[in-house]
Simulated assay, not measured.
Amino acid sequence: MTRQSISITAPNDHWLKAQVENEEYASKSEVVNDLIRKARAQQDEIEWIRAKLIKAEQSGFTDESPAEILTAFKEEARRNGDL
């Protein structure tokens, strides 16, 4: 594991400490690593949606615009609790 030194704002430090105090995590490092994992997973979802939009746009299967398709994906993800 690589050791890093970062600077954070006071409000963010209070929030990190609260996560540890609430026993959600054992350390602030765990909180930061979990946030990074979630951000990476979200990026993977974004890439998946982008690929679906490109495929749909190129297939000629729909006459919806990319913005309309993206809106529909987001609405479905919200309904499913994924977003």
Rank of each mutant, 00 (worst) to 15 (best):
T71P: 12
G81N: 13
T62Q: 05
S7A: 05
A10D: 09
P66R: 12
E30L: 02
E21C: 00
N33D: 10
F61C: 10
S29E: 03
D82H: 14
S29D: 04
R3S: 13
S29A: 07
A18I: 04
F73H: 11
E30N: 05
I36M: 05
I36H: 06
E23K: 11
R50V: 04
E30Q: 07
W15H: 08
Q58M: 03
T2W: 12
E45P: 00
T2R: 14
Q43P: 00
A67S: 14
E68D: 15
R40C: 00
D63F: 13
E47G: 07
V31T: 00
Q42K: 05
D82R: 14
K55I: 02
D13S: 10
N22G: 06
T71W: 15
I6G: 03
R78I: 12
A39W: 03
E68W: 07
V20D: 00
K52Q: 12
E45F: 03
I6P: 03
Q42L: 07
L16I: 03
M1A: 13
S27K: 01
E68K: 13
I69Q: 14
I49R: 02
E68R: 14
T62N: 02
K55V: 00
D34Q: 06
I8M: 09
Q19V: 06
A41V: 03
G81T: 08
S27T: 04
R78S: 14
I6T: 09
W48T: 05
A51N: 07
K38D: 08
K38G: 02
G81V: 10
K38A: 01
G81M: 06
A10R: 10
Q58E: 02
T2K: 12
K17Y: 04
T9R: 06
F61K: 13
A41P: 00
N80M: 15
N22L: 07
T62Y: 04
E76F: 15
A10H: 10
N80H: 15
R50K: 09
L53I: 06
Q43H: 05
A26P: 01
S59H: 01
I69P: 05
K52N: 10
I8T: 11
L53A: 04
R37C: 01
I54Q: 07
A72M: 12
